[in-house]
Write a protein that binds this DNA or RNA. Sequence first.
DNA 1: TGAACATATGAACGATTGTTCATATGATGA
DNA 2: TCATCATATGAACAATCGTTCATATGTTCA
Lengths: 121, 121
Amino acid sequence: MKLDFSPVECCDSVEIHESLLKIVDEKMPPEDELYDLAELFKIFGDSTRIRILFVLFEAEVCVCDLARALNMTQSAISHQLRILKQSQLVKSRREGKSVFYSLADDHVRTIISQGLEHVEE
Amino acid sequence: MKLDFSPVECCDSVEIHESLLKIVDEKMPPEDELYDLAELFKIFGDSTRIRILFVLFEAEVCVCDLARALNMTQSAISHQLRILKQSQLVKSRREGKSVFYSLADDHVRTIISQGLEHVEE
DNA sequence: TGAACATATGAACGATTGTTCATATGATGA
DNA sequence: TCATCATATGAACAATCGTTCATATGTTCA
């Protein structure tokens, strides 16, 4: 990440450059928020997790059923559920031997359906 | 991905299992759509690309200014812009030696701000 | 308590990702 | 045409990711 603010600007427009820095300063969310945001979208960036979420949109489901419904191993699903839970997109509840997972809040639904709209057009 | 639909069901509730498969069949978007959706969110799952998009929310900018504003190499930015363009989140326009990038549509804004809401709470 | 079942988790693996470096392409103006 | 500036891109690298396998933890019931 080498940077050279030499007196001779590239794009030869110092003004645009200045106003750009102003934009970055004023409108760009703080570093940690950007990081969290990217981290959130990263969660949605895997089709296994998306499929899990689509199931949870409709019902509270235990790990074993989730695995069979999505045709994947229990371990793979469990690992992904852990990631979803750590990101607080999903919550769990134990009932006997089983653990039932459900959506943590309805925000997820909105984000995913916005994404779907973009993809479907 | 070995799966064993033995007669003895785990979670011992065949009914829930059946209704789950119904959900998956009826409510789950088709395979390729899920893939595209994950692919879309993957794009947002990197803070460099998010920062680029935040700048483009405010202005049409050339690669060189983008690189300086975000304090990154021209090459790194160019690579990411290519990804953003391939996903049709961003469009470009040549003006002399420079290439100016801008948002392809306002859908992006909505998706990102939904994400921000979730992160900020 | 011990067998059986449901879930969680650590290590290991191949696959994918983002950046860097070097260089190619494209445009301008002398 | 040549030098220069702006951008694009291919190869290489370390880092991260998702799955599998083996196994640990937790719960129930006999």
